[in-house]
């Protein structure tokens, strides 16, 4: 992976605007969970992954953030993003099964990604190479029993080349995670396993960098405390932005807000 060695605030802002433009032009929702995941994906792809390292997006409904990240790396181009959600596209609402080298698996049904990542990490371990795997899950996804099956497996097989990230934005499909099936705080449940849990601000690039630094002698789980709709005040922490597309006025308002914040950014 060849990315920017250290992303600046302007890079994050540019990616956020491009993501919104892509969703607006395609008339597509799922924006809130894309904005909560975008910052972490940018840091992981640009600053952490290298060589044959793999990223597996378990929360496949954040494909928009993944496509935007690949665009920021030059792996997808403007024309590719214009095809998002269109007929005859590779850029479906959830990651495709084939056709984009950086995408390992077609995800979208929750509860698969961590097992896929564990299998991938195990393959590298069995081959005796140092390739690393990062898996990004949602928080609601931890209601899937299969995600816990995967965690048990990854711990048992000491898959220290696997990093699990949780986009903990507190909102799921039809309520908050606390209202629907509370495991709050999720990190308490995770700490019951033999894992190295870090709880960080998922929108603070330095915190993400620090969490990813070095090697762990336990399975590493990074709980990203995030905000659904991060960066656009009328979307933040509002469940409807799990679903709604942007109107033209809303798109303009969102871009203006992001650009106002850009003033003075490095």
């Amino acid at each position: 992976m060849t990315g920017i060695k250290k992303l600046t605030a302007k890079h994050f802002s540019a990616a956020r605007k491009r993501l919104l433009q892509m969703h607006f032009e395609s008339g597509v929702g799922h924006i809130g969970g894309n904005l909560s995941a975008l910052d972490a994906m940018l840091v992981v792809f640009h600053e952490y992954l290298s060589g044959e390292d793999k990223f597996i997006l378990s929360k496949g409904h954040s494909a928009g953030a993944l496509y935007t990240t690949l665009w920021s790396l030059g792996r997808l181009n403007e024309q590719d993003l214009k095809q998002f959600h269109q007929d005859d596209t590779l850029l479906a609402a959830h990651p495709p099964a084939q056709g984009i080298e950086d995408i390992q698996f077609a995800t979208g049904s929750l509860g698969h990604g961590l097992s896929l990542a564990a299998g991938t990490a195990l393959a590298f371990k069995l081959k005796g190479n140092a390739t690393r795997v990062v898996c990004l899950t949602s928080d609601g996804e931890w209601q899937e029993g299969s995600t816990w099956e995967a965690l048990i497996f990854a711990c048992h097989h000491r898959l220290f080349n696997l990093t699990v990230m949780v986009d903990h934005n507190n909102l799921q499909g039809f309520g908050s995670t606390a209202e629907v099936a509370s495991m709050s705080p999720l990190w308490d449940r995770l700490q019951g396993f033999d894992v190295d849990v870090q709880i960080i601000d998922g929108h603070d690039p330095d915190a993400i960098r620090t969490a990813l630094e070095g090697e762990s002698k336990r399975l590493r789980v990074i709980v990203l405390r995030t905000v659904k709709g991060h960066g656009v005040s009328f979307m933040e922490n509002r469940m409807e932005w799990h679903y709604l597309p942007l109107s033209e006025d809303q798109f303009k308002t969102a871009i203006e807000e992001i650009e106002r914040k850009e003033v003075g950014l490095k």
Partner: peptide, 25 residues
């Protein structure tokens, strides 16, 4: 080490198998 008892967790076992196969095992 390449004989793996994946335990009583068949959903995980199948997806792990897919992850292994994706890396040409």
């Amino acid at each position: 080490a390449r004989f793996i008892n994946a335990g009583v967790a068949e959903q995980n076992m199948i997806s792990v198998a897919a992850g292994l196969a994706r890396q040409n095992l």
